[in-house]
Amino acid sequence: MPEILSPASPSKSRATQIGLVLAGLGVVLLAIGVYLGLFVSPPDAHMGNVVRILYVHVPTAVSTLGTFTVAFVAALGFLWRPSWKFDGVLEASLEVGVLLALMTCAQGSIWARPTWGVWWDWDPRLTTTAVMLFSFGGVLALRYFVDDPVRRAMWSAVATIVAYADVPVVHFSVRWWSSLHQKQLTGTSLPGPLKTPLMLTFPGMLLLVSGFVVLRAKLAMRRRATELAPPPAAEPNPVAPTPEAVEGGR
């Protein structure tokens, strides 16, 4: 029986420990950053308090692109040198990435309504982001539909590489086309006191997301181990009548 199936292994694996430390550090930095962003930093002169959503929206959006980049690299790695490690990282980063993309859209909508005046509009940045969310959501769905682990890994790796074409387009969309969405932040976008919270929430979000990916990859490896384990030898069913009993009843 694989080690994995044994109940409650006494010590946590190395990967689990690393994942928990990363996520824990991330939560601490995010908590301090969010506190500063909500209660200490000044509002924007025109926008007022709404500007504070920037402290989570920007880190979430950047992490989304980063997480899908990890998925892309894992997919390439898998096809180049197939291993369950790459597949586990692919599964993890796809799932975390789709969640982040969804959060990015929700936060963006909440920010857009009071500032732009609308919840949503089909501007280039928003459209390409929606395309990204649905493409990777599709890849994730593909993983759930394919039962054979080997085919699932192969197909989703290929689909991830194709879907990734949109990720740099999301990044460049605000530079290539005129859009409703503002351009990326630059060094002078946020003067001193407005910048401080972001200096904490940004690394905090990256750490939390890396922790999630490590933990989720570990979970994926465990699932693969159970999926691929040979079925346990058939045990005699005490309820079903044995052939002898059936014979004897005649």
Partner: peptide, 25 residues
């Protein structure tokens, strides 16, 4: 990661590399 995953053939690595090239193109 230390969990032993039962060996399972991925098929020929050459084939999957062509998949990578195709998807990248």
């Amino acid at each position: 990661m230390t969990d032993p995953i039962p060996a399972r053939s991925f098929g020929s690595a050459k084939k999957s590399r062509w998949f990578a090239v195709g998807a990248l193109v």
